[in-house]
Structure formats: C-alpha cells, structure tokens
C-alpha cells in the first residue's frame, strides 16, 4: 500500500532559499498536505506551512505543486506516479515569510480599495426583498474561499511585479461583479472604477484564474467579461452614449 515518494520542497526565509530533497512515506488516501505534515513530524520540524481546515474550505494551504497553484489539502497523492518527484514551492507572486508561508497582505490592501455594498438610503435592514433569479449571479461569487490562487496565477502580476500597484486581480473583479450585479447596490460607477482604478484593462481574459479556482467559480466568463461589457456600455460604446444623451432619463 504505502510507498516512499520523492519530494522537493522549497525551504528558505524572505525569498532566499533553495529546493531541498526528501524521501517520505505515503499511504493510501493521503493528500499533499498530509505528506508536508509527515515531513514536519519526522524530518523537518521547522518546516513552515499554513493550513486550517484540511477540507478545501479555509483557503490557507495554497501552494504550488509541480508548478501548478493548488490547495495542498485537495491534491491527492494518487494523482501522481509513484516514481515521480513532486516539487512543492510557495506561491510565486507574493513575498515569502518562511518556507511555504507567504505574506498575502497585497490582497487585503486591494480588498480595502473596493467600495463596500451601498444600499439605497431609504431601505432599512430587514426590508430587502429580492428574488432568487436576481441574486443568483452574485451568489456564485460568494463561494470564494480567498485562497488567492487566482491572484497568484494571474500573469499580470505574477510576471510583472510593477503592475501590482495598478491591478486589483481576479478575486476583486468578482467582488466588483458581485456588487455591481446586486439589485440593491446603488454605487453606479463600479464598472468605470474597475477600469480606471482597479486595472480591469490589464486582464487579457486568458483564463488562468478560472483554471485554478478550487471553488470552480467561472471568474472570467461570469465576472470579468460581464464587467468588461459593462465598461464598454459606460465608456466605449458610442450608441449607448448617444442614447443616454438623447433620452436623458429624468433622474
């Protein structure tokens, strides 16, 4: 049943480090995070790794396994060959604190830049009346577990550190989409600010965020592209612009 697997794990602090080789026991039904824990228990007691739920729901154990951004607790060992060397590294887009633990505060800063849900002034909490069809699109985005795998894989910042200032990233585009599609949100400049302040235009819809999302949120198709289309409405479509001039709606 069990076998010895070859692991290469990135060890180091604050960016400086190297890949270290290990041979470690693997049993049936285990996931990569189990093996990292076994390394901690047997060979590398100071190996740092972040985790919480071991059920794919807390979003803590994001790492890169054979170069692919994944959740350590949701990557089954049975998907690898027994003689394969499995390389585990920290997320490549964020600064490393130690070993597999990154400083992901970039994401929290970006989160704070998005204006929060803005309901109409005259509707009190408890008075919201919404139909399921009106909120179902936003609900898909609520599944996000903030693992930041999408943020990590996005080439806009993964390959270009200098774009971090201007680019909020896919996780925050789904936040903008969620709020902009919400029937009770009255902040009506969300698409414009997405383009002007949060760097939506940097996204070239190559869909890596969608590919890695462990919650299978259709980030590109259901959030980014719809918001891009809403941006076109407000900023680039001459007919919509003309229409809004001619049929100026009375407030």
């Amino acid at each position: 049943m069990g076998y010895k697997a070859k692991f290469r794990v990135w060890r180091g602090e604050a960016g400086e480090g190297r890949l270290e080789d290990f041979t470690v026991e693997v049993n049936e039904g285990e996931v990569v995070l189990d093996i990292i824990h076994r390394l901690q228990a047997t060979q590398a007691p100071d190996l740092a790794v972040r985790w919480n739920c071991k059920a794919g729901k807390c979003g803590s154990c994001s790492m890169e396994i054979n170069g692919k951004p994944r959740l350590g607790c949701m990557t089954r060992m049975s998907t690898f060959e027994e003689d394969e060397t499995i390389t585990v590294t920290p997320l490549r887009t964020f600064p490393v604190i130690k070993d597999l633990v990154c400083d992901v505060s970039f994401n929290y800063e970006k989160a704070r830049e998005i204006p929060s849900f803005t309901p109409p002034a005259d509707v009190k909490p408890g008075e919201y009346r919404m139909q399921q069809v009106d909120v179902q699109r936003s609900q898909e985005f609520r599944k996000c577990i903030e693992c930041f795998l999408c943020q990590n894989v996005c080439h806009v910042i993964r390959d270009h550190e200098e774009n971090k200032k201007a680019f909020a990233g896919p996780r925050y585009f789904i936040r903008i989409a969620e709020l902009d599609m919400h029937p009770y949100d009255v902040q009506d400049r969300r698409p414009q600010t997405a383009q002007e302040e949060h760097g939506l235009g940097f996204c070239n819809i190559t869909k890596c965020c969608t590919e890695v999302c462990p919650e299978h949120i259709k980030i590109t198709d259901n959030a980014i592209i719809p918001v891009k289309e809403r941006v076109v409405d407000r900023k680039y479509d001459p007919l919509v612009w003309l229409g809004s001039k001619i049929f100026k709606r009375s407030s």
Partner: peptide, 9 residues
C-alpha cells in the same frame, strides 16, 4: 525590507 521578496526560483 527582505520580507518584500518572492521565492527566488
């Protein structure tokens, strides 16, 4: 400042 560094690979 060193904390600002990504894993050097």
């Amino acid at each position: 400042p060193v904390r600002k560094q990504r894993a050097q690979l």
